[in-house]
């Protein structure tokens, strides 16, 4: 017997040969966006190392140093590069910590959406019949409302039921739950559509003839073939989740001011915009826009590469 000379290509080799990598190498916008996004993620998650002060530590806050402008405006203090907010917290530090909170909630919510949506979508698509009709009717009803509306209403009701203090304490968890529950139908629909397309194919019949259980066919055979649309909507959904979180926080239904996300920083700063301290609200706002924009542009690129026929527009 002879040994086979060419061994199977590793995952890395397969990735290097893939169309995704090929088009990434040629797309300046995608490279720039990924770089910006990674910078923001790394900066946000190493906030305790990068930030000159700890905004959660009340001892480091000097109320006398509040509303100081950023460095390029007269009257700035060298100690605070981007100025300070109304409570005297260093804006640079609080933005780093705030971005971390926003990203955590964004990713958490999307993971929850994906878990719910993929499971329900697989069940609906593979089992069909009553399960399908029930789940899709549910998704229809929920989607006929704006997801933001659902999130605001659920947030408001949960806050009113549990009380403001309790809600603030578990705000991150609450926001992940609310945004996750508000947006699962997006995943469910996409997954169901791809499952319906896959279900009739021969490899599924083959697996069934071999006597595999439905659960195994669903998760090990069908699911991997529906991954690329899931991947594409995930990027858009992360951007949406971050915006939803910011909107909820802006309405006072999200992160408390003592533990702010980008949205609650914008909200807190908005109260001082009429007095001329625009930086408290507009600098976190700019960070939010750059973050969301880089994710959206990456999503656009990914959609074009992976599945050009998925969406219109």
């Amino acid at each position: 017997m002879t040994m086979t000379t060419n061994k199977a290509p590793s995952r890395l080799d397969r990735f290097r040969d893939s169309f995704v990598w090929y088009s990434f190498k040629r797309d300046r916008t995608a490279q720039l966006c990924l770089a910006v996004f990674l910078c923001l993620v790394v900066a946000a998650f190493s906030a305790p190392l990068l930030a000159p002060t700890d905004p959660y530590d009340l001892r480091q806050i000097d109320i006398m140093a509040s509303e100081l402008p950023p460095f390029w405006i007269d009257g700035a203090d060298e100690q605070y590069t981007l100025g300070t907010d109304a409570q005297g917290r260093d804006l640079w530090s609080i933005i780093l910590y705030g971005t971390r909170v926003s990203l955590l909630i964004g990713f958490g919510a999307v993971i929850l959406q994906a878990l719910l949506g993929v499971t329900f979508g697989l069940l609906a698509g593979y089992l069909g019949g009553r399960v399908d009709a029930f789940l899709m009717r549910l998704a229809d009803i929920q989607l006929s409302f704006s997801t933001l509306m659902v999130a605001i209403v659920v947030g408001a009701v949960v806050k009113a039921t549990l009380g403001g203090a309790f809600y603030s304490q578990y705000a991150v968890l609450m926001l992940v739950l609310i945004i996750g529950l508000a947006e699962w139908p997006q995943y469910a629909r996409t997954v169901r559509a791809s499952v319906l397309a896959e279900r009739g194919k021969e490899y599924v019949d083959a697996a069934r003839v071999m006597g595999l259980r439905s659960k195994r066919i669903m998760f090990r055979h069908v699911l991997p073939n529906t991954l690329s649309p899931i991947f594409v909507i995930s990027t858009v959904q992360i951007a949406n989740a971050i915006i939803s979180e910011a909107a909820l926080s802006f309405l006072g239904l999200g992160m408390p001011e003592t533990h702010p996300s980008l949205g609650s920083l914008i909200k807190a700063g908005f109260d001082y915009i009429q007095s001329g301290s625009w930086w408290i609200t507009l600098i976190p706002g700019a960070v939010l826009v750059v973050l969301v924009l880089s994710i959206n542009l990456l999503g656009d690129w990914l959609r074009d590469v992976m599945n050009p026929r998925l969406y219109k527009g």
Partner: peptide, 22 residues
């Protein structure tokens, strides 16, 4: 338009207030 999609509505509002009313 993609920049527009990425700016939350309340931030557009704040920027408009800063430019046109303050």
């Amino acid at each position: 338009s993609i920049i527009g999609i990425s700016i939350p509505v309340f931030l557009t509002a704040i920027v408009l207030i800063q430019i046109f009313s303050i």
